[in-house]
């Protein structure tokens, strides 16, 4: 990846989109300070680099700890890890000083769980929860770590449509109370609907700007038509034409009994 340069302000909702291998995850790992950039910097508003916040921290002059929250891709986690929901959510508060949990940290964890509606799962084992519940637990942990900025790496991967919608609504609520959101997503429609900034990556920055501007670009149309979508169809687009069949009927929400794909997929 090269020449990736962009800035976000507090309260933004940024979606990072792009095809597989376009460098989305690499970018996020760099933003989080998990990977050192070959060159260049990631800076916070006060000029502190992200490295001062985490392992291998260099900049000693940065006293302020930038608190960030992170929701990792779920596939990075182990499936059989014995841990209760409370243990996991509490571990998010550890960026505050001290070795043992204080009452304040416990309160924070409880209120994070409450706001995401998982307080009743507190004592349950993480690995016995459903996928949607697990995501909420990890989101609660991320909330315990930050009040400013949340990094989300494909938060809805593998969730069913209903839970996906709930997840997006939850993230929107968080954004509305002032938390900056940076999210990697394959779900371009949701990105267009919820975010206010878009970063389109393809090894370098193909687009960076507000969502409104992005909607007007060819890039967006092209990207949209790759996905069986109910709005877009571009007669000049090769991929669109290939999948024309699929596009045409999904576009009107019509169900065609003579169509193979329709019958296979049920009503769309």
């Amino acid at each position: 990846m090269k020449d990736v340069s962009f800035s976000i302000s507090a309260g933004d909702y940024l979606c990072i989109v792009g095809e597989n291998g376009s460098g989305k995850t690499t970018l996020m790992r760099t933003l989080l300070g998990l990977k050192k950039p070959d060159s260049g910097q990631v800076l916070f508003g006060d000029g502190c680099s992200v490295g001062s916040n985490s392992a291998g921290g260099g900049d000693k002059s940065c006293k302020q700890n930038h608190k960030i929250g992170y929701l990792p891709q779920k596939s990075n986690l182990q499936k059989d890890f014995p841990a209760s929901v409370m243990e996991i959510v509490l571990s998010g508060t550890l960026n505050e000083s001290g070795l043992f949990y204080t009452r304040k940290q416990k309160k924070k964890a409880v209120s994070a769980m409450e706001s995401l509606g998982i307080l009743d799962l507190k004592k349950q084992s993480f690995m016995e929860l459903s996928g949607g519940q697990q995501q909420r637990v990890l989101l609660a942990r991320a909330l315990c770590a930050t009040e400013d900025i949340l990094f989300l790496d494909e938060p809805v991967a593998g969730l069913d449509p209903k839970v996906t919608l709930e997840m997006y609504e939850m993230i929107r609520t968080l954004n509305e109370i002032g938390i900056t959101i940076v999210m990697i997503s394959h779900d371009i429609e949701a990105a267009l609907e919820y975010s206010n900034h878009i970063l389109h990556l393809n090894k370098d920055v193909d687009f960076f700007g507000t969502t409104e501007e992005y909607k007007k670009t060819e890039l967006c149309e092209h990207y949209l038509c790759h996905i069986p979508d109910h709005l877009h169809h571009d007669d000049d687009c090769e991929i669109c034409n290939e999948h024309q069949h699929l596009h045409e009927h999904t576009k009107d929400h019509l169900h065609d009994h003579d169509c193979e794909i329709c019958d296979e997929g049920g009503e769309r």
Binding site: R29, L32, G33, L34, N53, S54, A55, G57, N65, K67, I68, G69, Y70, P72, N76, S91, G92, L94, N95, S97, R141, A142, A145, T146, F151
Partner: peptide
């Protein structure tokens, strides 16, 4: 990853 990203210590 989460711990490294969010916690300095």
């Amino acid at each position: 990853d989460f711990t490294r990203a969010t916690q300095a210590r």
